[in-house]
């Protein structure tokens, strides 16, 4: 029950995009059609599911005060370790995608390696550290939930952007401006999930 609650909460309430604006760069750039958006969304979800438990274990057995060496707090190394884990995992995912799904690889282009610097992944790790989850299971559920939340947001936006391609938008708002406003409105809609508890 606890896990289910965390899962729903991380998808809808603590949504990476609508509540924290994490991963906006690729979110804005890759949301022009649903198919690519779906691909990138799955890649991000996968990365979060892989890296958050890894980083959780690192945090618990290496970084926390007295975990590795008695009386030494390695907390300040957190950022560097997290980013190293994320960068190497990205490299791995990139190789796998290139081998098994070349079409997806081509359509994602530069954004696949850029997942390494996607704020959503590092943000997930940092929030995981801040929220002090009870076990590796909770951390994994959190990773899966926030990944799916991100996927939901980018696919939703891509679908809307496909539809508005032909509408008559004031010239100065075209492109980024209207995308921001749509995201904002979607965010307000997601606010209505606030306070849901399973």
């Amino acid at each position: 029950m606890e896990h289910l609650n965390l899962f729903v909460k991380s998808i809808f309430i603590d949504n990476m995009i609508f509540a924290y604006f994490l991963g906006m760069c690729s979110y804005l750039a890759v949301s022009k059609n649903v198919k690519t958006a779906l691909g990138l969304g799955s890649a991000v979800t996968f990365m979060l599911v892989v890296t958050i438990p890894l980083n959780y274990l690192l945090d618990k057995y290496v970084l926390q005060e007295g975990a590795l060496i008695e009386g030494v707090d390695l907390g300040f190394l957190g950022l560097i370790l997290f980013i190293a884990v994320i960068a190497s995992a990205t490299q791995l995912v990139e190789m796998v995608v290139e081998k098994f799904a070349p079409a997806l690889y081509n359509s994602l282009g530069i954004f696949l390696p850029l997942i390494a610097v996607n704020c959503a992944i590092l943000g997930g790790a940092l929030f995981m550290q801040q929220r002090e989850f009870g076990g590796v299971g909770e951390a994994t559920v959190y990773g899966l939930g926030s990944g799916l939340g991100w996927l939901l947001a980018i696919v939703g936006l891509a679908a809307i952007r496909e539809k508005i391609a032909y509408s008559n938008i004031p010239p100065a708002l075209r492109g980024v401006g209207i995308t921001f406003i749509i995201t904002g409105l979607m965010g307000i809609a997601f606010m209505s999930f606030l306070g849901i508890k399973l």
Partner: peptide, 19 residues
């Protein structure tokens, strides 16, 4: 104060800037 309004405020700035 809610997070989505940050986006809409930024969109307004972009609107003014691009006009």
């Amino acid at each position: 104060i809610l997070p989505p309004m940050a986006l809409i405020t930024a969109a307004c700035i972009i609107w003014v800037h691009r006009s």
